[in-house]
């Protein structure tokens, strides 16, 4: 039996708040990509630091869950470490950095490199849930645009990218169409991660605390990144392998190494990088042993 912090309800939020968020989550799953309003509560961190994700996690997590929290791809940054220890304290759930071991993964905003499996839940901390917000500031109007499936404006935005830069220059928060109906902002994940959402076996829950919206992508759901016939969606690519573990085909962070323009590129997903590096060095040890 897990023990939680005395003086707080298990999961920090009071039961009625959890029920309200849970009802919103159920409708969000039933209407993939639609933003369900909810009464966002205060949690012990400022708005903009992942309060939406924290409220979603608090409403779903139980004592037998294993929680992983990543900030970009990293398990060891301040935000990730404090959210992880917050939930360890208030729920008694165990925590991990290993993607495969986790049942709930709270993130801003990467999707881990390891392939997700059925039964895992991704929880995203979303700053701006409305993909049309910077094109149409009025909430009443964007709601109507979603109702009418009036998404011409977003294509104009992508077209203007092409006209200006010769290619679609959006590299994060790249708009997607969910289940062929709702335009959705996949939170500011790099567009590199967009293809992982399509027909993903995991459940993806999005919580925007400041903007008071919850939305979801159920497992095995079509998630198509927008594009044109002659300018289809192209996720980011990286030419070089990770400087630490040698992985290719992963999302890399640029790390400035000196003041003379020197840079190195290393995995953004620290869990993937650590294990790939350990595997590589074990392989080298094996080779040396065989040689000796």
């Amino acid at each position: 039996m897990s023990t939680a912090l005395p003086g707080y309800n298990v999961g920090y939020l009071d039961e009625q708040t959890k029920r309200m968020i849970r009802r919103a989550l159920l409708k969000a799953v039933a209407i993939p990509g639609f933003q369900v309003p909810f009464a966002s509560r205060e949690v012990p961190m400022p708005r903009g630091w992942g309060t939406g994700g924290v409220q979603v996690t608090a409403s779903i997590i139980g004592g037998d869950d294993v929680l992983k929290v990543i900030d970009q791809g990293a398990d060891d940054t301040t935000n990730a470490v404090s959210i992880r220890s917050f939930f360890a304290k208030v729920t008694g759930a165990s925590t991990t950095t290993c993607t495969e071991d986790a049942t709930i993964i709270q993130t801003r905003h990467r999707i881990p490199e390891a392939v997700l499996r059925e039964g895992q839940i991704m929880v995203y901390q979303v700053p701006i849930p409305e993909p049309l917000r910077f094109l149409e500031p009025r909430e009443a109007e964007t709601r109507r645009m979603h109702a009418l499936e009036e998404y011409g404006l977003i294509y104009v935005k992508l077209y203007e990218d092409i006209a200006k830069y010769g290619h679609i220059a959006t590299t994060y928060a790249y708009p997607v169409m969910v289940n062929g109906r709702y335009l959705m902002d996949p939170s500011p994940t790099p567009s590199f991660d967009n293809p992982k959402l399509h027909q993903s076996p995991a459940l993806h829950l999005y919580g925007a605390g400041r903007e008071k919206r919850i939305y979801a992508v159920p497992p095995y759901t079509d998630v198509v990144s927008l594009g044109f016939e002659d300018h289809p969606f192209e996720p980011q690519r990286f030419e070089q392998p990770c400087a630490v573990c040698g992985s290719t085909g992963v999302y890399l962070d640029e790390i400035i190494t000196d003041d003379a323009g020197g840079v190195m590129y290393a995995c953004s997903d620290t869990d993937h990088c650590e294990r790939a590096a350990a595997l590589a060095s074990a392989h080298i040890d094996d080779l040396e042993e065989a040689r000796a």
């Binding site: 298990v10 799953v29 409403s59 779903i60 139980g62 459940l203």
Partner: peptide
């Protein structure tokens, strides 16, 4: 156990709607 039992029941409902 109002808190833990409700959480378990909710996850069953969420799982059912997701699958």
């Amino acid at each position: 156990d109002a808190t833990r039992d409700a959480q378990r029941a909710f996850r069953a409902i969420l799982d059912a709607l997701s699958h």
